[in-house]
Design a protein around this nucleic acid. Structure first.
Lengths: 313, 313
DNA sequence: CATAGTATTTGTCCTAGACAATTACGGTTC
DNA sequence: GAACCGTAATTGTCTAGGACAAATACTATG
């Protein structure tokens, strides 16, 4: 663990590991093989990475998460990397200039630390459109906008935190007002696999389900597979929903979902979604894979129809 | 990153690092120096740790967090380690058998995955005693009970998650109903230093402050020092509150708080608390160090008195 | 009892090699 | 053109043991 510091002239390898998510071993082997990053050394011969190197590593990391390979990226300059990200991000659906302006305004609140304005604006959006619309139409695209801005270095870590916290607060509050009134079936468990840290995706799913009158229980992030299985049967759950962020390796997600599917009773449905599952639908028989959050309410309705049909044959 | 698995006969070194918080390098050097843990090797010569070894490592880790040193612990058997923890945990203030029974009942709900009962019971406690009393009298001691149970292997990870999530939900909801009505000074920023993952402590502080009518803004966990400083001045904060869990090294906490104190304007107060700051009060001039959450409301009142005195000299 | 100096403990970094798992590629078949 | 297969290149993570500074414990001295 490294001393928290105010003026980081350069970062030691442990800090870079934290900031980029690239293991120390990986950083060293890249240096050996590709010649980047080539940090300077301090008086003890230990690596000291410049902020620029860390920025570039962050870009590379993000592109690798998108499926590209290190060798093709590591020689490029940061500008080219940023451009690749733009193109890969897909055709920005910015056809609505009003919405875009709205998002930029919110992003400005985040940048200027105007927490009250941020909170108020989000709250107003929520009230205007309702929880589900708020999630699909505001939170989801905003996440993209904020994520991109952070990647480009336009946001500080604290600012990204501020955003995430405020959104989580609003979603949690909204969800809890929903849940207290209704306790219908299905009973849904929400969680992520180990090594998956992103709670926001989970919360968004919960926000899509709660208004439908279903009973949601979130185990939070990073639940071991065996614990999910045990809790699933012990808690009489109808549906287990697992979310994967873009940073989660698709291979592990598929593998884990498969073994979980086998281990779970057939009566319990397994739902999965998130950017980490791009194009994995057909590799996962028996698992309901969601491409977008919009599909969630329909899937819930379908579950209820099936349940009725089974009960009254 | 390791494949999530259902039947872990043994864990690879990366998984042990995740589960115990001990770095791979540390695990290898302990093996070299002390002969423990001595994992078996798979067909590729790679370490495979038994669940028992991991359990013992967890115990050792916790005791090290309490200030003990590896050499004295590593030879002991798990039973002796557990006993040390009991003694170190201090004289259990279990003088009230009714309260103890209440906590055990809640712990049972957690163990049996009775999320609804858990939620209802906590909610009732909250309603009966009020938010501040709920935090100091229920949540804080419950955290100890749950933490101990988890350490002893009586709880699964998922169960500990379930507890944390439910408590966070209840606190967040309670806080948000408080905040929406009042926006008085002081404006308080809440966060933790990098490498500090525990959000619950932060939330408990917020719950102590919000009913006093102050304006709380949580940046969430792991904010870099420089970002705290920048956000502090940009957001016109009166107080910066930082929380440290028991696992956070006291040295780093002190060091970080000192440099933050120097970097902040004198008009901004710096508050700190949590198990990570045991006996560090006098090493931190200019920083208000909290031993317990009970002190928080009084400190707020004191701040307001001072503020009035300054404004009307 | 405090304080300064010395010895021990301890975590993290270093180098450099190895290898399995993954991905890319070229050829073949339907 | 799409799906499959075997081979080649790529890539992350593990291995070993050495080194050293920071943190802690111990000891002598005021």
């Amino acid at each position: 663990m490294n001393t928290p510091t105010l003026a980081p002239a350069g970062l030691p390898i442990a800090a870079v590991e934290r900031d980029t998510g690239l293991a120390k071993d990986t950083l060293r082997v890249w240096e050996r093989r590709y010649g980047f990053p080539l940090p300077v050394r301090d008086s003890h011969g230990e690596r000291v990475y410049s902020p620029e190197q860390v920025d570039k590593l962050r870009l590379i990391r993000r592109l690798i998460d998108q499926g590209l390979r290190p060798a093709k990226l590591i020689g490029l300059d940061p500008q080219a990397l940023g451009q690749m990200l733009d193109e890969l991000g897909g055709p920005r659906a910015d056809d609505d200039p009003e919405r875009t302006a709205h998002f930029q305004a919110i992003l400005k609140f985040v940048r200027l630390h105007l927490h009250e304005d941020l909170r108020r604006t989000l709250q107003q959006s929520l009230m205007k459109t309702g929880l589900q619309q708020f999630v699909t139409g505001v939170v989801a695209p905003l996440n993209h906008v904020v994520g991109d801005a952070w990647l480009r270095g336009e946001l500080e870590v604290a600012e990204e935190h501020l955003y995430t916290e405020q959104v989580q607060n609003i979603l949690r509050t909204a969800i809890s007002t929903q849940t207290s009134t209704t306790r219908e079936r299905p009973i849904v468990m929400l969680t992520t696999f180990p090594d998956e840290q992103h709670a926001l995706g989970l919360l968004m799913v919960e926000a899509m389900i709660a208004p439908e009158g279903a009973c949601c229980v979130s185990l939070g992030i990073q639940t071991p597979l065996e614990d999910i299985r045990a809790a699933a049967t012990a808690g009489r759950f109808d549906i287990i929903a697992v979310s994967f962020s873009g940073a989660y390796p698709a291979r592990l997600a598929i593998e884990g979902l498969r073994s979980l599917r086998t281990a779970l009773p057939e009566t319990i449905a397994l739902w999965a979604g998130g950017a980490g599952l791009r194009g994995a639908e057909r590799k996962l028989p028996g698992v309901k894979v969601f491409k977008t959050l919009e599909e969630v309410p329909a899937a819930l309705h379908a579950w209820r129809r099936d349940a009725e049909a089974t009960l009254q044959p």
